[in-house]
């Protein structure tokens, strides 16, 4: 029993993964997986954002840049060879992680809003490069045809009758669920460990942290690399999911806004916050797109953000914990 309590989180991860897999085997409407993918992807992006933004207090406005570079790494790989989706994800993660490391090195001496502006600029720079790079479709965008009857390690993954998954949307949904669970596990490991405590000290007072022996630059570089890498992995799945990608889609500012709004609404101080925010906000947005209008969801996002900043500055979890304390 105590063993179960000790590994409560790990067991929860496993249950979630099994649940996601079971869902794909129930023959549900495809829209469930289409919308579910979007919510899961946001949960992953928000979790990745929160590792840097929530734990270390460095606000990254360049989410779209990391996501886009992940997408376009996957596209370049597809155009260059017939790489499998797993290879695309790894490549997207590595390239975006390296970008994170580089950006971290050049901009982490900037603090507060200056860092935020620099990351916003990064997204625009990367988008401009992709706009002018014909190999990946340039400004016109590029269509991706998912491989027919793909196999992974000799297992037929997607096939109407014989595959593990009967269609691509179900497969991608499961893949995204696995990636999201992995990200949450990484975020939680950081949060509970020495790295997380160091980042917290940086958030509270960077100079004091440095003088207390915290190697601030090193910790920040590790963090930008992990955060960027995870965003890139989330982005690498994007081309297969959308089947058509152009720069305005892959580098949409909406990603930047959502990735920071979700942790803030959920609560930035713990791994649960971004998930809560993503599920809450992501679901509201997906429902709003279908029932009201696809443009209105940004207005809803803005309104929710304003309400939370005023009424619950520490997010839903912060508000909840404060209420319980009383």
């Amino acid at each position: 029993m105590s063993l179960m309590r000790q590994y409560k989180f790990e067991i929860g991860c496993l249950v979630a993964l099994v649940l996601a897999f079971t869902m794909t085997q129930m023959g549900l409407n495809r829209f469930v997986f289409f919308a579910g993918f979007a919510v899961l992807q946001y949960a992953m992006i928000a979790t990745a954002w929160n590792i840097l933004g929530g734990y270390a207090g460095y606000i990254n406005f360049g989410t779209a840049g990391f996501l886009g570079i992940g997408s376009y790494t996957a596209i370049a790989l597809i155009n260059y060879s017939d790489a499998s989706i797993v290879e695309q994800i790894i490549a997207g993660g590595v390239v975006a992680g390296l970008l994170g490391l580089g950006i971290g090195y050049f901009t982490l001496r900037l603090k507060g809003v200056y860092f935020a502006i620099a990351t916003l600029a990064l997204a625009i720079v990367v988008e401009t490069i992709v706009n002018n790079w014909d190999f990946v479709g340039g400004a016109a965008g590029v269509s991706i045809l998912p491989a027919r009857n793909p196999e992974l390690l000799g297992v037929l993954v997607v096939h109407k009758k014989l595959g593990v998954f009967s269609n691509y949307k179900e497969f991608l949904f499961f893949l995204m669920a696995a990636l999201t669970i992995m990200s949450v596990w990484i975020a939680r490991t950081i949060e509970k460990g020495k790295l997380g405590r160091g980042l917290n000290a940086i958030k509270d007072n960077e100079e004091a942290a440095e003088c207390m022996g915290v190697p601030t630059l090193k910790l920040k570089l590790i963090t930008t690399t992990i955060s960027g890498g995870l965003m890139g992995m989330a982005g690498a799945v994007f081309p297969s999911y959308l089947t058509f990608v152009d720069p305005p889609t892959a580098f949409n500012l909406e990603f930047a806004v959502n990735s920071l709004a979700m942790p803030m609404i959920g609560g930035t101080f713990t791994w649960l916050g971004p998930i809560l925010g993503a599920v809450l906000l992501g679901t509201v947005q997906q429902v709003a797109i279908v029932t009201i209008s696809s443009e209105l969801n940004l207005l809803i996002l803005g309104l929710l953000l304003v309400i939370f900043v005023i009424a619950a500055p520490h997010g839903f979890l912060g508000w909840f914990m404060k209420k319980n304390k009383r």
Partner: peptide, 19 residues
């Protein structure tokens, strides 16, 4: 310049853990 999001004892744990 205390680490304001931490308790008093957690403030001390930072230098202890890192140094």
């Amino acid at each position: 310049r205390p680490f304001h999001s931490m308790t008093v004892i957690q403030n001390l744990q930072i230098p202890l853990e890192f140094v």
